[in-house]
Amino acid sequence: MKNQLIGFLFCFWIALSQPFYFHSGEREEKCIIEDIPSETLVIGSYMVQKWDMHEQTFLESAPGLGMYVTITTPTEEVLLSKLYGPQGRFSFTSHISGEHSICLQSNSTRLISFGGSKLRIHLDIRVGEHLIDEVIAQAKDKVNEANFRVEHLIEQIHHISKEQNYQRQREEYFRLTSEQTNSNILWWAFVQTLILILVGIWQIKCLKDFFIAKKLV
Rank of each mutant, 00 (worst) to 15 (best):
K2W: 06
N3C: 05
L5R: 06
L5S: 04
L5M: 04
F8G: 01
F12I: 09
F12N: 13
W13Q: 06
I14A: 14
A15P: 06
L16V: 10
S17I: 07
F22G: 02
G25K: 00
E29W: 00
E29P: 01
I32D: 02
P37G: 01
S38L: 11
E39D: 09
T40F: 04
T40D: 03
V42M: 03
G44Q: 06
Y46F: 15
K50N: 04
D52L: 02
D52M: 01
D52F: 02
H54P: 00
E55G: 00
T57E: 09
E60I: 00
S61R: 11
G66Q: 07
M67Y: 02
Y68F: 08
V69F: 00
V69D: 00
V69W: 02
I71V: 15
P74V: 09
T75N: 10
S81G: 05
Y84I: 01
G85V: 02
Q87M: 07
F90H: 02
S91A: 12
F92G: 03
T93R: 08
T93D: 05
H95L: 04
I96A: 03
S97V: 14
E99K: 15
S101G: 06
Q105L: 12
K118W: 03
R120P: 05
R120G: 01
R120F: 02
I121M: 10
L123F: 04
D124N: 12
G128R: 05
G128C: 05
E129V: 05
L131S: 11
L131C: 14
I132E: 12
Q138F: 11
A139C: 08
V143W: 14
V143R: 13
N144E: 12
N144D: 14
A146F: 08
N147A: 08
N147T: 04
R149G: 00
V150C: 08
E151M: 04
E155M: 09
Q156C: 12
I157Q: 13
I160A: 10
S161Y: 14
K162A: 09
N165Q: 11
N165I: 03
Y166T: 14
Q167P: 00
Q167H: 08
R168V: 11
Y173A: 13
R175G: 01
R175E: 05
T177N: 15
S178T: 15
S178P: 00
E179D: 14
Q180R: 14
T181E: 12
S183Y: 11
S183Q: 15
A189R: 15
F190G: 10
F190L: 11
T193C: 04
L194Y: 07
I197V: 10
I197Y: 14
I197G: 06
W202M: 15
I204M: 06
L207S: 04
D209S: 11
F210G: 06
K214T: 05
L216H: 05
V217G: 11
